[in-house]
Structures are given as C-alpha cells and as structure tokens.
Design a protein around this nucleic acid. Structure first.
Lengths: 316, 316
DNA sequence: CTCGTCCTTGAATATCTATGCTGATGGTGC
DNA sequence: GCACCATCAGCATAGATATTCAAGGACGAG
C-alpha cells in the first residue's frame, strides 16, 4: 500500500472513530484490518494533526483579576488562565494553549511579526497554533542564537513553523545572541548583511511575541554557552534587576538596568520592542512574578497571558 | 459542590486529559475523585461541546470530479466528499460535517439566511456547526411544518440554534408546510401576519441552505401527515418529476413539473429560491442522483456538497 | 543471491476506560 | 418529620484500547 492510500485509510479511520463514533474493533472488521492497526492509525492521525481535539476554555473566568490588572497597569488586555497545576511545565502548556487560542482569533493585520524562539513557552504556543489570519509577510527573530546547538535547531524550526502558518517568510537571526564583548557585536552587525537587515526590520514590528524571563539562567540554556553567565545575572540582580524581556534587564519598576549588558545582545532593542504595534507576552509561575510586573510597568507588554496566581500577585 | 465548581472541575479534567495527556486514573488521584467520575466528567465535557474533536479532511481529494462538474453545470463551486460509507445515515453525517466546515470558513456577509429545517442533513449541518462569521440578522425558515409534531420540535430547535450561532433572529414559519388545497394556502397567508412577513423576507435571501429530495415520501415524514401523499408523488413521477427542491418538483432537465402542487406548499417559491444570492445545497446517495442533477440544471444550486458516487454520476 | 536491518503487521495481552449496580445525599410533597 | 424520587459518587467489572512481542516483508550492502 502506498503512502497516499495509507493516509486515506488514516483519515477514513479517524472519521469513523471520531465523527461516526464507531469502535475500533468494528472499524477493524469493516476495513479488514486488525484492531491494533486501527489504534495505531488513530495515533498517527493525532500526531499528524489530522484530528485536533481542543478544550474550549470558557473565557474570562477570572474577569475580576483581569479588570483589576488592566486598571492598574499600562496594558490593554490581560487574559488570566485557570491553570490545572502550578507545576512549571504544565503551567507553560496551559498558558501556551491559551495564547494560541487568542492568536487564532485575531483579526488585525500584522505584516511584520517579531518572535523569540528561545522561549520555551512561545515555542509551545507555535506548536499549538493551527492557522491565523494576520496577513503576515515576515516573521523576524528578535534574538540571535542562545544556548546549545540542539536548542537552536528547535528554535529555527519554530520560527519556520510560525512563518508557514501565517503564510509569511521567516527571517532568521543566525548569529550568536549574546557576545562576550560589545565590539564583537558591532563587528557581527557590520559584517553580516543578513543580520543587519533582520535587525532593521525590527524597527517596524506590528506584533511582537515576547517572552519574559526571571533574572536567572534559564534551565534549558547553559551559563555562558551563548548566554549570559551566572555571574552576569548575579551582577544585574545586585543592581536591582528582577527580570528581563528579550534579554534586556528590568528593575522592579520596569526601568532599564544599565550594566553594559544590553550592548552584548544581538537582537531587538528596548526601543524597537516598546514601539511595536502590539506586544503580546505569555508568562507565569512564581519564579517570574516580579519579572512580569516589571515588564508591564516598563511598557514592554500590551497583552498579557498569565496564570491566576501571577495575576493575584500583580494586583496585590 | 455547586454548579460552577462542577463545571470548573469538568474543564480541569478535560484539559488534564486532552491537553496534558494525563490518564484518568492519575487525574482521579490528583483531584481526589474516583476514576469513574473522571470518565463521566469527560463524557459530560464532550456533550457540552467543551471539548471538540474535529477531523480535518484534506480538501479537494476529488478535485478532478469537482472541476468536471463545475465545467458542465451552472454551479460556481462543488465539493466532493470522500464518504466513509455509502450507507445513507453515515453518508449524511459526512456530508453534513463537510458543509459545516465550509460554512465555518465563509467570509461573505449574509444578512438573511434561508433554511429548511426539515432536511435531516441540514439539521446535522447545524448540529456540527460551531460559529460562523456571516453577519446575519435573520434566519428564515423556507418551509412550513412537515411531518409529525416531534419532528417539528427538532426543526424549530435547529432553526433556533442556527440563528443563535450566527447571532441573528430566527424567523419561524409555524404553519403547515403542505395544505390539502390551494385556497387554504391563500387563507393561511392572508390570515397570519407572521407567515406573511416571513414569506416576504424570502424575497431577499443572501444565502439559502437548501435540501434536495428524491421524488418520494421521506422516510422520516409520513405520507399525508403534513406532507404530500404517496399518490401525489406517484402522480408527479408520472409527469416526469425526478426530485424536488423545497418541495418544488423538477424533471430530469431541471424544469418545473406543473401539477398544481406548488400551490399547496407554504414556503419559499421557485423564483425566490433561484434569485437568492447564494444557494448552498448538500445531498448525496444513490436515491438522489437524478434529483441532484435536476437541481443543478434548474439553477437552484450554486454550491454543492456531495459524495464521490453522486459526483461520478453527474459527470457520467 | 543472501544476509542483516529496519519497518510494519496482527495476535495476545496488559492497560485503561465505561458502565451496571448500590448506597448516599438532598430536594419535594404530604 | 418522613416517605418518596431524583441525582450522583464509588466500587467492581465488563468492555475498549494500547502495547508487547514475534513474524513477515522490503530494502540495501556485500
């Protein structure tokens, strides 16, 4: 049996099972295959996203918190998710799905989207996305490479996927995201035409999908490996930093923490970010409470998706 | 536990199960409830349409047939569904889902939608629909009541649901759909203001969702019970009728079969139907082959959703 | 051609899920 | 206050689904 037939069979099975409600055993009998094969075809169908199961979460269960935050911070929209658990990975998944759902419904046009593929949650958002209607031409990475090579692969794939979902071109930033010294940064920008062009595109972001980080080394990355070192984070913390947005450090009030580290980052600038038409962020979990608050206060975020605990912290 | 908590629990369970892939037993343990309750909550969630499972059928598997039909008949669009089985009820379900999927994606505005809730397939379409973007103000029934009272209940509910999905007002036609004699029809229209108004609205249909019937008593209806009798169908067949659209009989070339029966129908007229901006029909199955052909030839259909066998018949 | 590797399949079975049944709980009518 | 009914939870288990394992087959290297 060739590949196309295989796929048709898969779809037929999926429809019989999900749409018609036929049991696997009966499907097997009807199509003259074994039940185990039916089961496997169904798994395949799930993986190929031929069947999509979405849990429609009634919006705005926490309307009270949302309103409170919208009143207190310079944001236009807050969505509070009722996470199933406070455990970081499950939380991330919930937040990601919520943001994906939001993105599916957008109606505005966003020719240029900025994306940071090094945020695990944002990658999960992209994973969960199906299609969207932003008439996007370009998806530009807002940060260079961070962390180990295998992560860079995931990141690139994620940018690629987002671009193909919106029907736009991916614009990669294939260069180290953090350089050891600022002159090197100049050199990189000067020498690499693609990098220069990508960075210029960030001047006209219509939609920036930003991750918010606590002021610490991300577990998935490694200190110093294409990333800031523990010492550098330590130093920034001692200067009052509580978090970062696209590797730009913020103090508790959302102000910039100067320490020369901005000059080591190859990526979107604070100004570029703040002047983006829309700035959507997704972040949650106890570790990031202060960082989220800082990002909001600093005007780096326009629309926030977060969990109820973080939301409660924000209004407290 | 009150109702709201119950619903939250349901959603939490649904998300743990579907989004996070946790087993029922583990969910039960985490939430301190029994596995059976988890199972039942999940069933509930399915029923409440909180979890929706859709099988994305790759469009245009039968592009060849579609093109051929579009070339030969005065239609603008044909969608051929690869049905899982030729059995009538399963076929109907597949067709219905296909049409629902199409409707979900429409972008045009249709202030007035005409609907015939007595078609089982069309009711299934409405059942499968989630939301749509037609900016509809009114959903007008195109035929009066047919068949036994319990069917009328289903029909009304279906119209109601469609209206609420599009965010419009349902306009019912609560009057017999087939009257024993034409003077009675005049009387009904004259006496009932609502009926008169509804019928007038049908002059300006932007989208008509029409069912196509073979020239015979629908199994779900009953001969003579608010419907044409077997004898009447027989008579029409002897005059060359091969099918009907909204109870207007058609010969093999799509021409009107005169026999006075049009005057017994309280509902949309042939002209109203043909002048509708868009005329979407869903029909399939061997019994209706000729009827579908006639409806296309007669210009009653603009966009057709049908099965591959019917499609093959149409091009043969 | 032959062997080894990798992949796919179906039978058997382990695992997971749905459901009949029973008792508990809470609301209703008398 | 009490019998009555309805509803719902949990247990046990029937029923359905996923997975293990071994066999068969396709493919490529030798």
């Amino acid at each position: 049996m060739n590949d196309v037939d295989q796929q048709r069979l898969m779809i037929k099975v999926a429809r019989l099972y999900h749409t018609h409600g036929v049991r696997q055993t009966d499907i097997a009998q009807r199509l003259q295959i074994s039940q185990s094969r039916v089961s496997r075809l169904l798994t395949q169908a799930e993986e190929a996203a031929v069947v999509r199961t979405v849990v429609a979460v009634p919006l705005h269960i926490h309307a009270d918190l949302e309103d409170a935050i919208e009143g207190r911070y310079p944001v236009s929209e807050v969505h509070v998710v009722d996470a199933v658990s406070a455990a970081e990975d499950e939380l991330g998944r919930d937040l990601a799905h919520a943001m994906a759902a939001l993105l599916q419904d957008v109606t505005f046009a966003a020719p240029v989207i900025g994306f940071t593929s090094w945020s695990r949650t944002l990658r999960m958002v992209v994973e969960a996305l199906q299609t969207l209607r932003t008439q996007t031409e370009q998806v530009v990475e807002m940060l260079g490479d961070l962390g180990p090579p295998e992560l860079q692969h995931d990141a690139a794939r994620s940018t690629q996927r987002l671009a193909s979902l919106v029907g736009g071109q991916p614009v990669f930033l294939r260069t180290p995201g953090v350089v050891p010294d600022s002159s090197l940064r100049e050199l990189v920008i000067e020498r690499d035409l693609y990098v220069r062009q990508a960075l210029e595109q960030l001047d006209q972001l219509d939609l920036a999908l930003v991750g918010i980080g606590a002021c610490e080394v991300d577990p998935a990355l490694r200190s110093g490996d294409n990333f800031f070192t523990n010492e550098q984070f330590e130093q920034m913390r001692s200067r009052g930093a509580v978090g970062e947005v696209c590797l730009h450090f913020l103090d508790a009030e959302g102000g910039a923490v100067e320490g020369g580290l901005d000059d080591l980052v190859v990526g979107v600038t604070r100004e570029q970010l703040r002047s983006a038409g829309r700035r959507w962020a997704v972040a949650g979990g106890a570790r990031k409470h202060e960082a989220v608050k800082a990002a909001l206060l600093g005007g780096y975020v326009d629309t926030l998706v977060t969990d109820s605990e973080t939301a409660a912290y924000l209004v407290s």
